[in-house]
Computed example of a mutant assay.
Amino acid sequence: MNQKNLEYLQEQVKYTGFGEGLNDEIRTKIEAGEEKFIVLHEAEFGKDKVDAVLFFSKSKESDMYFFNKYDMALAKEGETEKLAQTFYINKGNNITLKEAYNLMEGRAVNKNLTSAGGELYNSWLQLDFKQADDRGNFKLRHFNEKFGYDLEAALAKHPIKELSDESHKKDLMASLKKGNLQSVTLVRDGAEKKHFIEATPQYKSITIYDENRQRLDSRKAKSEKQAEDSGQSAKNESKKQAVPDDESGPAAKKTRSSKKKGQGV
C-alpha cells in the first residue's frame, strides 16, 4: 500500500469537509486492493439531513488511488423528496460539504478556482435549478471578477452593526463567501434587531431575512430605504398648515397619509 497516497487521500477527504471519521474505512478498502470503492457519510445541518457517497478509484498505471467525486442528497425538514447533486473533486478547487449544502439551499459560494489553462481566478458559484445536464446535475453558474459583484459595497448600503468593527466585518464577509445564511444586527433609529443575510451576486446585492428567516419583501424593503433617507421630512409633513388651493378658492387643508416604509435589500 502506498502510505503517502493514503495520507494524502485522508487529508483531502478531511478538508473537503468530511472529517477524519472515514480514515479507517478508506485504509481498509485500499489494503483490500479494490479497483473502485465508495464510502458513505451522513451529516446534519440544523434539521436538514445530508447523505453523501464518496467515490474512489485506483490508477491504471500505478498503485495510487484518487478521490474523484461525491454524490450528495439533501433531505429538507418536512419534505419527502430529496435534492441530489454530484460534486467533482479538482486539485485545489474542491467544494466542501458545507459549501455543497449551501449551494443546494440556493445560496452562492465564493471560490478561488483554476482555469483549464492553469490560471487562478476568483468566482461566485450558484446552482441553476432550472437547467440540468444529461446526467441530471444542475448547471453551476459562475459570476467571476469581471461580472463586478462587490460584496463589501453591497453590505455598506445597510445599517449592519457588525460592519463597525473590522474583525467582525472580516468574519461576516468570510462567512457569506462560504455561502452561509449569516445572522447580523440591523440598527435603525437607535434600535437593534436581529436579521439574517446572504450574498446575492446575481443582483449585485444581499438578501435580507427577518428574525424568523422569512425573506423581506423587496417592495417593502425599498420603501424602508426611502423612509430611512427621509425620516425627518416625513415627520414635518404631518405638521403642515392649510395653504390656499388657488387665488379665488378658499384655503384647503392638505393632508398626506403616511406610508409604512422599510430598509432596502
Rank of each mutant, 00 (worst) to 15 (best):
I95G: 08
K170G: 09
A242Q: 09
K49L: 09
V184E: 01
R256W: 07
F18E: 04
L74D: 03
L103R: 06
K14E: 04
S257I: 09
E237Y: 13
D71S: 14
K76M: 07
T200G: 07
E25C: 01
N102S: 01
M173E: 15
K36D: 01
S218V: 04
A75C: 04
L176P: 01
D134N: 13
R107Q: 04
A73M: 11
G118L: 06
Q214I: 14
S223E: 11
H142R: 06
Q232P: 06
L140E: 10
T16H: 06
L120Q: 12
N90R: 13
H41S: 09
K178V: 09
R213A: 10
R256N: 08
V13A: 03
E228C: 02
F56N: 06
Y70P: 04
A191P: 00
A52Q: 10
A108I: 04
N137G: 00
K220T: 15
I95R: 05
N122H: 14
S257N: 10
K58M: 10
A108N: 01
L120S: 11
D150N: 15
S183A: 09
A156H: 06
S183F: 11
S223V: 12
K69A: 08
G262D: 12
A234K: 13
M72K: 02
K170H: 13
K146D: 15
R256M: 00
I26H: 03
